[in-house]
Write a protein that binds this DNA or RNA. Structure first.
Lengths: 153, 153
DNA sequence: TCTGAAACGAATCGCAA
DNA sequence: TTGCGATTCGTTTCAGA
């Protein structure tokens, strides 16, 4: 299911990223079109999966999630079975906000958000008891300098 | 401006994270309350900054952002002036989706999303010409295994 | 494909409990 | 504070150009 995305689509997506609670009229005005065409484009982009979840950004600190770790993982296991188990372990743990398989020396990087260092340790112990990993380095964030999910369209 | 967040607030936030386009009636039903109280709580949480931006998640690959790098940065500079310049450079660059100041050996980590490796190189060259950094390691993501902005409330 | 309008549903606010 | 109702505002659908 592919879509050709033109200039108007890009403008619409850009507006939605910026503020998804805007009315169709507002978006239409911004992109120089009108309600119905904008509505049809959004529907198509949603069906094509270009537009995904509709969400709000919450203040992690205010909700008690005060610790953020980046976890660098090296493993000696590279079989499909191990990978599947590792993947499932990550999917199942809500503290894992991001996980990437890497090229090169380090095999995986995780971003883990937890309430405090103790909660990180609990996560770490649980993870290494579930899957074998060769080497783990945790980088502790002292300060989040920038955070955005916006793509520069 | 601080807020005490109770169980009902937490449920509301959880629903909003999951799907911010739900109607108030739907949220009210989910959390076992009704329209007016839910509306008042959301308004307060927004004013207190607990609820931030309202946005949509876009498919980065479909929009041509096919490369993602994690960048580990060591610097020998730790003065306020250098920090301010570095921070500004990061804020100004749309390809930087996340930036953290770290504890320990490595000073900063960035998450950088770009169209391709060439675009990463352009970013890298621009960055090091603007601010002095001692050592830079780029980790290339081969596959995004998990990605969520949801906090486990 | 776009425009305009009509019909429907939801958000917002006042008022009573 | 909540619950209800009225009004306003937004979304969705459809006819016609």
């Amino acid at each position: 299911m592919d879509v050709r995305i033109d200039e108007v689509d890009r403008k619409i997506l850009s507006q939605l990223q910026r503020d998804a609670s805007q009315s169709l009229d507002d978006i239409a005005r911004e992109v120089g079109s009108s309600k119905t065409p904008v509505w049809n484009r959004i529907r198509k982009l949603r069906e094509a999966g270009v537009i995904g979840q509709h969400t709000v950004v919450l203040d992690a600190d205010a909700l008690g999630f005060e610790a953020c770790f980046f976890v660098l993982i090296r493993t000696s296991e590279h079989e499909a079975e191990w990978q599947a188990a590792f993947l499932k372990a990550l999917q199942d743990r809500a503290e894992v906000q991001e996980a990437h398989r890497l090229a090169g020396d380090i095999d995986y990087i995780l971003k883990v958000r937890v309430k405090n260092a103790r909660a990180y340790d609990a996560f770490y112990q649980a993870l290494i008891s579930e899957v074998r990993v060769h080497n783990v380095t945790a980088l502790l964030s002292m300060e989040q300098i920038k955070s955005t999910t916006m793509l520069p369209l």
